[in-house]
Write a protein that binds this DNA or RNA. Sequence first.
RNA 1: GGGCAAUUAGCUCAGUUGGUUUAGAGCAUCGCCUUGACAGGGCGGGGGUCACAGGUUCGAAUCCUGUAUUGCCCA
Length: 870
Amino acid sequence: MKIASKYLPGQVEKNWYQKWMDNNAFGSVPDNRESYTIVIPPPNVTGVLHMGHMLNNTIQDVLVRRARMKGFNACWVPGTDHASIATEAKVVQKLRKEGIKKSDLTREDFLKHAWDWTDKHGGIILEQLKNIGASCDWQRTAFTMDAKRTESVLKVFVDLYEKGYIYRGQRMVHWDPEAKTSLSDEEVLHKDVDAELFYVNYEIVEKPGKFLTIATSRPETIMADRAIAINPKDERYSHLHGMNVRIPLNNIEIPIILDEYVALDFGTGCLKVTPAHDWNDYAIGEKHGLEVIDVFNENGTLNKHGLEWNGLDRFEARQKIAESLNDSGFLSKVEKYKSSIGTSERTGAVVEPRLSLQWWVNMQDLAKPALSAIKDNEIRLIPDKFKNTYAHWMNNIKDWCISRQLWWGHQIPAYFYGGDDQFVVALGPEEALVKAREATGNNQLSLSDLRRDEDCLDTWFSSWIWPISVFDGINNPNNKDLNYYYPTQDLVTAPEILFFWVARMIMAGYEFTNVKPFENVYLTGIVRDKKGRKMSKSLGNSPDPLELINKYGADGVRMGMLLSSPAGNDLPFDEDLCLQGRNFSNKIWNALRLIDGWEVDESIEAGDAEKWAINWFGEVLSQTLEDLNSDFEKYRLSEALMRIYKLIWNDFCSWYLELVKPAYGEPIAKDVFDQTKYFFDSIMKILHPFMPFITEEVWHLLSPEPDNKFINNEDWPNARVNSRVYLEQFTHVEELITALRTFRKEKNIAFKQGLDLRIKNDLPEGIAAVKKLTNVASISSEWLDTGSPILAGAREYQIILDDSIADISDEEKLNIEKEVSYLLGFIASIEKKLSNPNFVNNAPSQVVDLENKKIGDAQSKLKVLKSRLN
RNA sequence: GGGCAAUUAGCUCAGUUGGUUUAGAGCAUCGCCUUGACAGGGCGGGGGUCACAGGUUCGAAUCCUGUAUUGCCCA
């Protein structure tokens, strides 16, 4: 068969994925093998594949494929997340473009639009995962808002409510004026910005004409001021204790109060207290019994308290009000200063503190087992540097605000039969009615008297039970799948969602199943561009993974990503790495072409060089397999891949194949050929988790297997030998070969011209290999004074040359002199060490012996080099 | 502002409890070679006072202290 000289991944990859699908190659059902499970971090249902997914899912695929070959019943569960706020924002935006306002729609109509959108765009990302080779069990695909998952979420809500963890409370929350919803603490990102500090004068009521100056960054909220606070220790203001001031613009009188919280050195030392619009002011307000006046509407515009600025956006109002204060003489100055503001993780809007009635989960007790699980290594974090951060967060955990003023999500299963505190929590309306009748004692109550809570749940309230709910373990505890696949083994995700998701899954795992949800958490880094910037749509610096796949093949891109992604470290992505991956595919392809072209002759015997090569490579392979086990144990995937890369490119292609390769036109001995195929087969298996497509293709071409048998179902190769005899011999073989190659180069001797090699001592092991790779024509131990000396390691050789080229050139001389001076320096440094009595007396004897050996070796080298110069 | 981590070759990273030659790998770079697997190749080089300053030790990239820079988390 004639195989193309270049490997073209496009069609090969499509063909194999189709065959894998046709044969349900990744399907898993419980059997008597041990299970290995990964649940996918569900991407947003309407999302498209970006580089972060590419990295994350490639890692999962490597782990799953390897587990499959290691004999586990491996199951990778795919699925998507409804992504409440993100999806709702997208749908609102899309409707706006069509001229439809969300506020004009009923909940039902809006949800219909949202489902249409989901049906249209949903699942695209799962199809894209197939392009990268993801070996998911597609029959288990789940969605956080499908029937089973929805039922699970409601059950969990009811359960936690009945246990007393969930409560309703009027509290300060983070408010996103763009999405018009509350947010959890975790959904708020803090950013440093350049802001302005406005110095505003408030007239002192008891001293007309006298003013008190306060510094504020938010003049638009002054109408809601309910006090001016000063530190009781602040002597500058002690004469004002007990007095009042008048708010500019609305002339309302408010008291001057004393509170230790006020910093003496910030601004003027006077703080305007606006309980409705600042977390700290709220606390001060509660302490001093101040009224809470909210000047904003839910979309961040000013309301009726905003006087003439009623209806104006908060930022515009800030400028206008500052101007107005200035015009009326109340503004004394404006200063620039650095400030930190909270923004919504999803919409980017600046969040407002807002007092409102929300649903909360008390986290104190849930956090306890989750904290000790990580602390006691019952669940491993990889890398473990995140343990501290995790512990810190868990120790300072606050209650979780789970209600969102959104429609796309799981509607809260609470039913009101009266006012805000008259409700029941139930799985459905009928059950709610029973409970409501019980609660009221009114049997006349009907379904139409019940009003379901309008809000829906935080997205993470469905994903925190994901490892359980994908196996339907909430609805059917102890079902066969759950018992078999759960707890799962590895979770692969980004550190950014360690608290959002991972910590909460651990809590949910212990709370709802009494066991941990997974054994290990592998935290990937963030994919960045060459300049170190995070890849994002808005920067336009994120390559499209699918285009990369077109260019380099999925295998090439997978390798590119994995080559430089140690756990927990950011990945500075560089397309050149994919190029390296593509080149590697081509290298493998051409090794196959070489073997494919060999003619086998059963009647010939393997030569010494070939025999030596087979023994040597057998040891290299075994050694690599051992090293790989330890790499995987430590989740050092980049190192594992690099190890395989070097095994294939250097050991297999550059050394082994060159050693067993028959001369042009000559046949190869059958046992050498079979051994070579066996080695090739093994290295394809080892590489398969990383580069699934080319390995599948080559494996099938190497020894035809039926199309419905796949390399991923083969056993992972075992180390066959544990000796290191040939590995040790190789050290000197390599030294000698390199020395001879260098010699040829320096003397400008063509490879075709055979060398006459003289050996001083015994014939080294593996000399046949040296002979073959360096074209040594004759070997003898007859030592001639006229021979050109060669040094390989610490051993001496000679090459006999015609007089015409035997003399050393100036260039050679220069090289030798360089080496001599290096050795002299080296010897001096060791002599210094050895002449130090403290070293000789204190260091262990092996260390001292070693230094003596070093010096001996160096001296004999020096001797040879000097003899060459004469 | 508080906490955590990092700093080793042009780039990305290894370097296990301090001692295996004056620190390794891949990529990049430079030179030479290349009609019988592969220029998407082969061979051979060059390149680092291990961020800086102290300290502990016979011995420090490795341990300690401080400084600087960067990143992440939290407020």
